[in-house]
Design a protein around this nucleic acid. Structure first.
Lengths: 244, 244
DNA sequence: TGGGCAGTGATTGTATGCAACGTACAGGGT
DNA sequence: ACCCTGTACGTTGCATACAATCACTGCCCA
């Protein structure tokens, strides 16, 4: 069931992706193939493949003969990404409403249960729990996308989902935010059970847009908060070499 | 100005893509790396890169240790793809309305001119002219997407644009169809010039949906037409080896 | 006769060597 | 002092060799 990743290229891809998303490799870092190869104990070939894959997902930029660099999140249009994502997830929910099987529905319900129990524990400030929640959330939305039976949304979603995950991991939310998200998910399930595509679509759209709004506020607060620190320019260390 | 493609991998990618889109490689063909390498006079390395790129665009499927196969169009959900594309292109047009520069606008207008002159020539049955028209059309829509300043739509569009191009090339349209398309483009320009995002978005959406409808009709007609031929099952020759 | 199994050929995955390109720095000229 | 250029180094791009995996055939055995 679990596609045990045997290929070295896959392992390298997953590891690198994890490093980047986790923020352990600073934005703008130059990713030298040889360095990564020795670091992961592989040759350059699978590393190259990984980098190209990450490029197609928009996680790294690579210029010919000049190598790959981790993209700079700060330069991204967060609002635009969320707007498009709201559109696509709404579309996906609309299609899924007609196609979800009972088994898929109950699987989604189970994911809801687990997210709610994490929320109830109240320990969402913990980065570990936070990460678990994010993963469950991704499984929930991914499950809907899968049920929609539209393979062509996969490349579209691949890039649109990454950034939200990163950003949400970087900011801390209150319990009420998770509770609202959980309520949205439950309402989605209701819409799905009644096979009401329009309802499902609109709930999904508002779900994404509300999380966009919440994130924008979190960013605004954080940038205010760190305004004082920013007064002295940041030291120009690092940010140009991955080898810690 | 012209990004002269020097890298062998890029050339191979473009050529292969052209072959696939042009239908010269039948759906389901097994793409053996060594064959392609000798065929293009390259080594397997750049070929591999091309195949992986085509995979991320959804043009080929590749299973570990089992190689790449050209995807089968017939199994695709054409309506769904067009529906999603209508959504995304509408979104793109909405954003572009606020951002298009005068230079970009006049460039789009020039593309319209050229498409109209091709239509006026009336020789659109010619595959050559048809291909030129399709390319201009892609430049038109691509230009709008670029002006929208939303890099994150690129992977989304990459897959959504390919299939329409293929299918439209396979079916013949009447002059009135192209004229309608040209009118839509002109109206889009009007909306852009008046910076009316809502108008632009709705024109774009209806533009895509109308071309979807037209395509669906063409497919229906063609399948009826060839129903008689289909009565005896197709010979199981070819379709499994690219080497002619 | 049918099914399983090992061997063989072909194909993909990975490692490594070499060539081409880009960058940085030092030296000389204006 | 500034700019231009040539050279040296590091990195990427491509080719090729080798290893691992898969598919297929023919054989053996129940």
């Amino acid at each position: 069931m679990e596609p045990k990743t045997e290929r070295a290229a896959d392992r390298a891809y997953l590891l690198l992706r994890r490093e980047i998303i986790g923020g352990r490799i600073p934005a703008g870092s130059h990713l030298a193939e040889a360095d990564l190869a020795t670091q992961y104990g592989l040759s350059r070939t699978p590393i190259r493949e990984s980098l190209r894959r990450l490029q197609s997902e928009g996680l790294v930029e690579v210029e010919p003969h000049r190598g790959a660099r981790v993209v700079d999140w700060n330069s991204f249009d967060i609002e635009g990404i969320y707007d498009l994502r709201a559109l696509i997830e709404g579309f996906v929910a609309h299609r899924a409403a007609d196609r979800l099987t009972d088994a898929q529905l109950s699987h989604l319900a189970e994911l809801c249960d687990r997210m709610e129990s994490l929320t109830a524990q109240g320990s969402l400030a913990d980065a570990e729990v936070m990460s678990d929640f994010a993963q469950l959330n991704e499984l929930f939305h991914g499950g809907i996308a899968e049920a929609a039976g539209a393979d062509y949304v996969i490349p579209a979603r691949s890039m649109l989902v990454v950034l939200p995950v990163i950003l949400q991991a970087l900011h801390s939310y209150a319990t009420v935010d998770f509770e609202r998200s959980n309520r949205h998910h439950r309402e989605l399930l209701s819409a799905f059970r009644s096979k009401d595509a329009e309802w499902a679509s609109s709930v999904m759209t508002s779900h994404v847009l509300s999380s966009k709004r919440r994130l924008m506020e979190a960013i605004r607060d954080k940038s205010k908060e760190s305004a004082a620190v920013m007064e002295l320019p940041p030291p120009k260390t690092s940010a140009d070499q991955v080898s810690a």
